[in-house]
Nucleic acid binder design. Structure first.
Lengths: 126, 126, 126, 126
DNA sequence: GTGGTCTAGACCACA
DNA sequence: GTGGTCTAGACCACG
């Protein structure tokens, strides 16, 4: 099940993003074990070193902890999910607002822009 | 007036963003001449090679054209501004929605998130 | 009574440190029997293999001896405690002085640093 | 000028320690450029990837910043040296006190231990 | 089995 | 030239 990576963002960060998404979506829960480095490497079709780097990164960010000889686990803290979601949500909004502001847009125009996006897509509420 | 560039985005693209902002905000109009590569390089405190690359990039995107021996000019097309703004706006919104969707958020939650951002900031209109 | 181990130091050495502490503090005396590997493993909440390794290590260091079929005992030598304490103390001081010297600090500054540490902690004598 | 690394601590962290020492001792000042990754790798007799990791680590710790295409520089902040020294000094003292306390030693005994160390070494004030 | 480190050598974008 | 990423393959300590 090899995957592909397109963005210019480093693969090890793209993998981190996927893991974050899985956690936020509830596909992985607090306390769960992540696949081993080697296993994940095979799944993703990348080198184990790349996954190693991913795991080191998300551990540094405090989302995950490694238990020696046992593996890498999502921190067993029930608040980790909402905390992570809020953090990522905030980051996205701030980036979005900052960029739109540079285009000379007002708050109302930003909100309206997002609303219109969904209207034009019709009932595409996935 | 040396500036500083911190983002991980390449400097030459950050410079392009600034130029786009200036155009969209009306500080530069269609048909206007951009500063020479060397002049801009001094203003920005970066290497002329970097500005060269910026100009090549925004020319490639069709925003600007080079007249030999005269310099680089914003295309003398009255619609260029709104066209540029619309394109960038659309890009921002699509990226934003895509990212937020990955966090498992609904359309309503996205809109609400942006609105709340401005409420919490209060009269912080910069 | 499961415990937790955070330090980057190997768990089997952390367990050894605890045993050394117990001996030096007099909680265990020369000639005393240590808990069995399995018992200790349960107490510490770690794998028996890990304790096995701990016992091998402290035996190798001459603090403990294994009597076949009977268990692991602290050597029945009255001088073992002060000897162990002196050795560990010396190791700590040498490491400390070496590290501080690398920071360009003088002997006086080292002594003063330790003294000040306790002053600032005030009556925080645990 | 190949060097050797003995400690069980990873090489990339030992290199970091050396750089920190150089900064604290004033051999490198704020704003100075560090040797390039490749150059340092040759000096230290290790693989460039290892140095890369060192540089990434000390950048993450805020001691150093990289200017794209130019190199890695000690942050141009006059307070960086004393700040770094204080941080490392504090770390050393806390570790030392913690370890000595585990040996059942009192504050006075710790101070005395360090003082005696220097006395026995005689006028060995390097 | 697990994660962590290291080497070798390659390729890339950036300035 | 610089730092950053990635692969391939190896070795290690730990549990």
């Amino acid at each position: 099940m090899t995957e592909e990576f397109h963005s210019s963002k480093p693969i090890y960060l793209q993998v981190a993003d996927r893991i974050y998404s899985s956690i936020v979506r509830g596909e992985i829960s607090h306390g769960d074990k992540l696949p081993s480095v080697r296993e994940m490497a095979v799944n993703m079709g990348v080198n184990p070193n790349t996954i190693q780097r991913t795991y080191a990164e998300i551990e540094r960010e405090g989302i995950v902890e490694t238990k020696r000889g046992q593996g890498t686990f999502v921190k067993d803290d029930p608040g980790i999910v909402s905390s992570l979601q809020n953090r990522m949500k905030k980051e996205q909004i701030e980036a979005f607002v900052g960029n739109m502001r540079e285009l000379g847009l007002t708050a109302d125009e930003m909100v309206e822009g997002v609303q219109r996006y969904f209207m034009e897509k019709g009932g595409h509420a996935e």
